[in-house]
Simulated scan of single mutants.
Amino acid sequence: MVTGATGNIGRCLVGRLLADGAAVRALTRDPARAALPDGAEVLRADLTGSADLAPLLAGADALFLNLAAGGGQAVTALVDAAIAAGVRRIVLNSSMAVTDTAADDSNHIARMHADVERTVRDSGLEWTFVRGSNYSTNTLAWAPSIRATGVVREAHPGAQGTPVHEADLADVAAVALLDRSGAHLRQAYRVTGPEVLTTAQQVAEIGRAIGRQTQVEQISEEAAAEAMAGPHLPLEAARELVRLFGTMVDAPAFPISDAVERVTGRPGRTYAEWARDHVADFS
């Protein structure tokens, strides 16, 4: 079963699992608009509600759990439902911000994901964590300004990252979900892209992909935080993130990992590939 099935990672994961011959149950709030691949069993589910979730998991032996599908409270309910339904394994979409040290209490993203990891560990079920670095899809937030003016406004154009393609995260998760050897049990994979790029370099890659001039305009940290904040990201948490990006000007927060190649047998996709895959979003 795949939660967050219509999200960036979930949609890729459903397709990958079906291609591998797996039976897939995909959860979404609106099956009529899901447009998921033929072959998936698409079920309506609002994970933020109070309904019993165990029937949704009946017959499933593995669960892909994405915090974005319903938040921390939904995770607890889903884990409890998985235990009740006899699910054997959980593969959790987590974050590379989690370090398994006291530092996990120091910022919003690490704290949120570390809490969920503890819930999954304490469940007694088999588990694998896919700790992604900075998602390439986060840069879709630049799409409106690139379409309008070709200009991206950020506080730290020189901040370095290791952007990871959502398809690579899905591929790692698929291997863990379908594993019958036990090789991926109790593993916390730190998954990055294959290269270090600054914010300005990522913007330039998008420009090359769409065939237009693009550039970065530097703005204040407060202006960047206010632009980033929203219903799912409080302003103070956005300020924490912007300050964190400032520390990445000298070095990326997450060193390059070979997890994609070790788990899937092939190198990770570059940001340039990601930009070409998303030309329609920026054009």
Rank of each mutant, 00 (worst) to 15 (best):
V2G: 05
P31D: 14
L65K: 01
R121V: 10
S145G: 08
A173Y: 08
V79Q: 00
A204T: 06
L53Y: 03
H184K: 11
V203E: 07
T198R: 05
D20Q: 15
R33S: 15
L140I: 14
G49Y: 05
G150D: 10
A102C: 11
A141E: 11
S133N: 13
T99Q: 06
R208K: 06
R88Q: 13
L56I: 12
L56C: 12
M248H: 15
A183H: 05
T270V: 15
V164S: 14
G71P: 07
V14C: 02
V175R: 05
A74L: 00
S95Q: 11
R180N: 08
A102V: 13
G21T: 10
A45D: 03
T28V: 02
G4L: 09
P234Q: 00
R212H: 02
V191A: 11
S181G: 08
R147Y: 00
R186S: 08
G161N: 13
T76Q: 09
S220T: 04
E154Y: 01
V87E: 00
G71W: 10
R208P: 02
R266N: 05
A259R: 03
M248I: 15
P267V: 06
E221T: 02
L241F: 04
R276D: 14
N8E: 14
V87G: 00
A74I: 00
R44C: 12
T48Y: 13
G70A: 11
G71F: 09
D250P: 07
V14L: 04
T270I: 15
V79T: 00
R153G: 05
S257Q: 13
P255Q: 10
R276S: 14
R269A: 14
D122A: 01
Q218I: 12
H165P: 14
Y135Q: 11
G132C: 12
T6M: 15
D281H: 12
V152C: 09
V172Y: 06
L56W: 07
A26Y: 13
A223G: 11
R243C: 04
A159W: 08
R243W: 04
S220F: 03
L140W: 15
V279N: 00
R89Y: 00
V151R: 08
P144K: 02
W274Y: 06
T99C: 04
T139I: 08
G72W: 05
